[in-house]
């Protein structure tokens, strides 16, 4: 939303639930420096949700919402799954229509917003589970990449169908015993990051959500690259602690184990040479901007 539209009518301000008053006063819409460090310092764009206690999807959502470069001009597309229990609580417009069609919906949405707002960068971000991204929706995921659609796809990879009770998914590890995989999964975890790279994604990253600064950087990269070049893909390991039998405190350890050397989620990042150059330049610009801002603040303090 053009940032100036996020305000409460003065005459009815005192009727609005305080979380909305906070959102208008203290959320970081429009703040160029927003990032995961704002969590705890500012009003988050997410209200209480009904994920299981300790579910890593929850912290992943918080990092992502805190790190979006321009939430006031972002629209999410979700899909059926545990994530869709969170989206009604998110203070960024978002769409849920069917299970698995998220990248098709996002393709139409991104194009419509481009037509309607030719001069505004409206970011479209898909955020869906692994079942939605890789199994039922794989065609739409990949075809949107083939077409070069300019939006970011994020997959919350919990290696199973959580919302329907823990069934086998394409991103599940080989051999894992789950519902509908009664003798263990018989084929390998689908290599979606590599498929993404080969299918036209200009930037691909695969990681866990154990390190917030990394999640922030990857998300910002993906969105900036999507604006300029085309499709980008992020796969985040958000283990379903409920279905793999972990306690609510154990999600972080699970992620750390899996990203250690030899693990399934060792951080990887693919990008084209053009994108590498572009991101280098963006980083430099960002540094300069921050330096200038610091200087200006110092000057102002002096004066």
């Amino acid at each position: 939303m053009s940032i100036e539209k996020i305000k409460i009518s003065e005459a009815l301000h005192d009727l609005m639930p305080p979380e909305y008053q906070d959102m208008v006063e203290d959320a970081t819409y429009g703040n160029q420096d927003r990032g995961w460090k704002d969590i705890g310092e500012s009003k988050e764009l997410i209200e209480q949700h009904s994920l299981c206690a300790g579910c890593p999807e929850s912290i992943a959502f918080r990092y992502i919402l805190a790190s979006l470069p321009a939430p006031e001009n972002t629209v999410f597309v979700g899909s059926t799954g545990c994530t869709s229990l969170v989206f009604p609580m998110v203070a960024v417009h978002n769409i849920h229509s069917l299970f698995g069609n998220q990248n098709a919906v996002a393709s139409g949405l991104k194009r419509a917003l481009k037509i309607r707002f030719p001069d505004v960068e409206k970011d479209v971000v898909v955020l869906a589970g692994d079942g939605a991204t890789v199994d039922i929706g794989l065609d739409y995921t990949m075809q949107s990449w083939f077409r070069g659609e300019k939006f970011t796809t994020i997959c919350f990879d919990n290696e199973l169908y959580a919302n329907t009770g823990g069934q086998e998914s394409g991103l599940m590890q080989k051999g894992f015993v789950a519902k509908m995989a009664p003798v263990g999964k018989l084929f390998d975890k689908v290599r979606l990051p590599e498929i993404a790279r080969e299918s036209g994604c200009h930037y691909v990253a695969c990681l866990t959500v154990s390190k917030p600064n990394r999640v922030e950087k990857v998300l910002k990269n993906a969105i900036l690259v999507a604006r300029e070049f085309g499709p980008t893909y992020i796969q985040l390991y958000t283990p379903c602690i409920l279905e793999i039998g972990k306690q609510s405190m154990e999600g972080l350890d699970e992620m750390k184990d899996s990203e250690a050397i030899g693990g399934r989620f060792v951080f990887k990042e693919y990008m084209t040479d053009e994108v590498k150059e572009f991101l280098k330049q963006k980083d430099a610009e960002e540094k300069d901007r921050k330096k200038a801002a610091k200087l200006a603040a110092k000057e102002a303090a002096k004066a």
Binding site: M1, K5, I6, K7, I8, S9, E10, A11, L12, L15, M16
Partner: peptide, 20 residues
């Protein structure tokens, strides 16, 4: 009152809010 006047998302909305 609903969102279309609770939010000052255009001038008319804010005026209607005052009227209400």
């Amino acid at each position: 009152p609903g969102p279309q006047i609770l939010w000052h998302w255009n001038e008319s909305a804010a005026i209607k809010a005052a009227c209400v």
